[in-house]
Amino acid sequence: MKFDRRIIYLFVVIAIALPIIFPLNLKVKTTKEVLGVYDPIEKLPEGSKVLLVYDYEPSSGPELDPMASAVLSHCFEKKLKVVGMCMWINTGAAIAEKNMTQVAKMYNKVNGTDYVNLGYKSGGYAVVLGMGDNIRETYPMDYHRRKLDELPVMKGINQLRDFDYIVVIHDDSSVFSWINYGYERYPDRVRIGTGCTAVMATGNYPPLQAKQITGIIGGLKGASEYEKLIDYKRKHGKSGPATAGMDSQSVIHMFIILLIVLGNIMYFTVDKKKRNND
């Protein structure tokens, strides 16, 4: 049985909008995959260096921006030095600039001293290889066209192995470049965690099981778990963007399941009779 798909669209709008207007405040449970990213950062001493890779398009922003903000907030709270960059998706440079500026304002962090955005560099995996040898040769200047030697945040960071932890947030498979050409070259020093869209998360389980990465933050759910771990609500007086979005995601997931069940009931009853008559 067919009916106007616009009716479905209308229910989708309602299912997404209602939980935003009237929050359900559903409780989020943390998983071992997300703890695999949180714990290594939590254990880092003050002043440690973290590389945050923003390899995603603006289209994935609503799903991945809250994740990047949560990880960055955690780093700033722990007084870590953060270096942002991208190498597969060139719009990631502007996303990094936007995200880092926003979060840095919340924690009164100074660009160049506490964090820096290196911007985009073409070459894909060759960028990882280049950074493994010499970061200053690969990125002579940052996004603001300042020489890296002039930036206090870059003090002591010359090669990839100088970073204490790397978080790759991506909506493609760029984390595999970091695994193949970063972790595999310096397995004793390079530790990687990843954050990705929910549809990409399943592809990151093999390197997780092989301990090539320490953890996965998968989609908005993973980001909401991270917000819970850093106690976002208590510190900022409101739910984080990912936690707020989880109510809508819960309702829309249930709505999709309802549609699947309904579609199958129709298929095995009404449509079957029609097929038999034909």
Partner: peptide, 26 residues
Amino acid sequence: QFPLAATTFSLTAFFICSASYRAFRA
């Protein structure tokens, strides 16, 4: 750029819901 790209991508939610009713059969 950011809102336009995000909006376009968000439209997939509508198509997924519609497809889940029409195509996801046992």
